[in-house]
Computed example of a mutant assay.
Amino acid sequence: MTYAEEDFLQLSGLQHFAFCRRQWALIHIEQQWRENLRTVEGDLFHRRAHDEQARERRGDVLILRGLSVVSLTLGISGKCDVVEFRADPGGVPIRGEEGLWLPFPIEYKRGAPKAHQADELQLCAQAMCLEEMLCCRIPEGALFYGETRRRTLVPFSKELRETVRGMLEEMHQLYRRGYTPKVRRSKSCSACSLQELCLPALMKERDVDAYLRQAMEVES
């Protein structure tokens, strides 16, 4: 199966979905958003990585930033923070460069490694897009965390790839339905930038759009 361009979802939404399906739906279906300190710091951290004009060469490593990627089979598009192309006889040709190069995607995160797999899933999806675009196989990538200032190696296992595909299929189904999942309260709710929009203590039965419509009707 392949997706039409108008049906593409944002690749970055996979991280939101893995963290909280409701958060993803509020952002990507209901178009709700609210900044907090974490989101602002994260945005600034990513801007430093996303210098699309930068093309850096370090020996046998070519570094590209803000590289746009897409997958027709997954139905997603987005950008990679950094992709290191390493000279490798099993790699692929790159325009303007001699030899063959194997991509190694790197995603930058403001905080520290997490207990859940949201970051790993987003990185794996980037690799799967690159594989489809470049007709190659990417075995691993890395997450760079701002707090630890070091890379965490991420192998792109069969299980991780299957989880990416399964989640994206579910995301497409929910998006087509325009459905926002109900609240499932957790410890993560207190750190979510959408807490005041999600209203986890109140929205067990109602969606945010209905709540906001009612609030506006009362005010008018």
Rank of each mutant, 00 (worst) to 15 (best):
T2V: 14
G13T: 08
L14V: 05
H16I: 03
F17T: 05
F17W: 00
A18N: 09
F19M: 06
Q23P: 00
A25C: 08
L26D: 03
I27C: 01
I27S: 05
I29Y: 00
Q31C: 10
Q31Y: 12
Q32V: 14
Q32R: 12
L37S: 07
R38G: 08
R38K: 12
E41L: 15
E41R: 14
G42M: 09
D43T: 14
H46G: 01
R48M: 13
Q53D: 10
E56F: 09
V61R: 10
L62Y: 11
L64Y: 14
R65E: 05
G66E: 04
S68G: 06
V69N: 01
G75I: 00
G75C: 02
K79A: 14
K79H: 14
K79T: 15
D81I: 13
R86K: 11
A87Y: 05
A87I: 06
P89I: 14
G90D: 05
V92P: 00
G96Q: 06
G99V: 15
G99E: 07
L100C: 12
L100H: 11
P103K: 10
Y108E: 03
A112G: 04
A112R: 11
Q117Y: 01
Q117A: 10
E120Y: 06
Q122R: 08
L123P: 00
M133D: 11
M133C: 13
C136Y: 10
P139A: 13
E140K: 15
E140C: 09
L143D: 03
F144V: 15
F144E: 08
Y145G: 00
E147P: 03
T148N: 09
T148Q: 14
R150L: 05
R151A: 12
L153I: 14
F156I: 08
F156M: 06
S157D: 02
K158A: 10
E159D: 02
L160T: 10
E162F: 12
V164D: 02
V164M: 05
R165M: 02
G166H: 02
E170P: 11
L174P: 03
Y175C: 05
Y175L: 02
R176S: 06
R176E: 12
P181A: 08
K182V: 15
V183C: 01
S186T: 13
S188T: 06
S188N: 01
S190Q: 07
A191F: 13
S193L: 07
L199I: 11
D207A: 04
D207T: 10
Q214I: 09
M216Q: 09
E217A: 13
S220T: 13
